[in-house]
């Protein structure tokens, strides 16, 4: 059976909120190392990958591999009943037809219990190769969201260029064009404001802004976002879910082709 207790329901609430417009139904794959999710959007342009390692929970117990087939719209309805600061416990049997969710207020003076019906989801799993990216950018997540939102007002796609001069986001549309250039920046007093750029070779790729703006719904999960680029491979946009390494929400986006 599965029993997983999260100290803050906020993490799961925000993960589901960030992905529910990209993915409707997905399996939460539970095993002794934690809970993982991988799903493509309907048009197979983007891939969502979530990992919540066992050490993100206390306690965590999962004796056998269990796939929890969940409709995210339904899960959202249940999670709406949890306060961000509630303690969240997930429970399921080895071959479950429902997922039990318990929300406890931190004072333990309120306990809510829900059972969510599960579904059989036959989902393809993709192998994501280990990639040495040509450019890795770590920046404030709200800043990345602002850039994507601002540029989407002008165009449906953005070209991201990484060079020794910095990272340049460029778009052009019917009303005109725009660009934003980021340079490495270290704020000693406020590390969250840092922009870190690692570059091994210049990169230029074009992506659909609609998807990038969608990924930015995860900005509430983490102060910083890591963006990884290499020529002719999908873009990786990654948000840390906890302070522990390995628990993250990742989005992969196939580049635009032919121009």
């Amino acid at each position: 059976m599965l029993e997983a207790r999260l100290d803050q329901a906020e993490i799961l609430k925000k993960v589901v909120d960030a992905i529910k417009d990209l993915v409707q139904d997905c399996n939460f794959d539970c095993n002794d190392s934690g809970i993982a999710l991988q799903a493509m959007d309907n048009s197979h342009v983007a891939l969502v990958s979530m990992n919540l390692q066992a050490d993100s929970f206390a306690p965590y117990r999962c004796d056998r591999n269990i796939a929890l087939g969940v409709n995210l719209t339904s899960l959202t309805k249940v999670l709406r009943a949890a306060q961000n600061t509630d303690i969240l416990t997930l429970r399921a049997l080895d071959a479950p037809d429902s997922l039990n969710l318990v929300f406890e207020s931190q004072d333990k003076d309120r306990i809510s219990e829900y059972d969510l019906k599960l579904m059989d989801i036959d989902q393809e799993h993709l192998g994501i190769p280990e990639t040495e990216y040509a450019a890795t950018i770590k920046m404030p997540s709200v800043e990345f969201r602002r850039i994507c939102t601002d540029l989407m007002a002008l165009s449906e796609s953005v070209t991201i260029e990484a060079s020794k001069d910095g990272i340049k986001f460029t778009c052009s549309g019917d009303i005109g064009n725009g660009s934003v250039t980021l340079r490495q920046h270290t704020n000693v007093e406020n590390e969250k404001e840092n922009i870190e750029i690692e570059l091994s070779e210049p990169v230029a790729l074009t992506f659909s802004l609609k998807y990038l703006v969608n990924f930015c719904k995860a900005a509430g999960l983490s102060n910083t976002v890591t963006i990884c680029l290499s020529n002719e491979v999908p873009l990786l946009v990654s948000y840390a879910l906890t302070s522990k390494a390995g628990s993250n929400l990742r989005f992969y986006l196939a580049p635009k082709i032919g121009d």
Binding site: H44, V45, E124, L126, G127, I128, L253, A254
Partner: peptide, 14 residues
């Protein structure tokens, strides 16, 4: 979508 690559052409099925 036109001009848009598929993620499946980059990542292999397991």
């Amino acid at each position: 979508p036109k001009g848009q690559g598929s993620i499946m052409s980059f990542f292999n099925k397991k």
